[in-house]
């Protein structure tokens, strides 16, 4: 954690370089060849291989199985794998997983809006599908052809 400052001694930091307020920002390590550093690098490469493997699975499914399997199941797989990939990128590559829990929640909560967006727009799309395929106006147009 950052060192405690009293309010007077930090005033100048607000006006200029704020970085010294946050211990996480300063270069807090010195030896890039240390075991800790090497562990972090190997974690990065591990996530890379996981992301690559997920993408390969997705492409193989898209090429060979997406036409022979039930569409709903395929979409469920694709969306699940996409969210898994997104989770790895955000948690490890963007280091959100290393932040304080309160900050993680602050960033993620607004994304809950997407649940409503998707429900609302699928409902809207369903209405238009109905209008396009079954509405009297459409039948009138078809009959005139």
């Amino acid at each position: 954690m950052s060192a405690h400052h009293n309010n007077d001694s930090i005033q100048h930091l607000y006006e200029g370089d704020q970085s010294k307020l946050y211990s996480g920002v300063l270069q807090h390590h010195t030896d890039i060849n240390s075991t800790e550093s090497k562990n972090q690098v190997s974690r990065i490469w591990k996530i890379f291989w996981i992301l690559l493997a997920i993408t390969v699975v997705e492409v193989i499914m898209g090429m060979f199985f997406s036409h022979s399997m039930p569409k709903g199941l395929v979409n469920f797989f694709f969306l699940g794998l996409t969210i898994l990939k997104a989770g790895y990128i955000v948690a490890v590559f963007m280091h959100l997983g290393d932040e304080f829990k309160g900050f993680i929640v602050t960033v993620l909560i607004p994304l809950v809006l997407f649940v409503w967006f998707i429900i609302a727009f699928l409902a809207d799309g369903g209405f238009w599908l109905h209008m396009n395929s079954e509405s009297p106006a459409r039948q009138h147009i078809e009959a005139e052809k």
């Binding site: 405690h4 930090i10 970085s19 307020l21 309160g102």
Partner: peptide
């Protein structure tokens, strides 16, 4: 006197910008 989340202003605002960008792409 200190950052409760130990995140600098610039980094936090980068996250919030990305959040707004995510909503645009969404």
């Amino acid at each position: 006197g200190r950052s409760p989340y130990n995140v600098s202003y610039g980094k936090m605002m980068t996250w919030f910008f990305l959040l707004s960008d995510a909503l645009t792409f969404g």
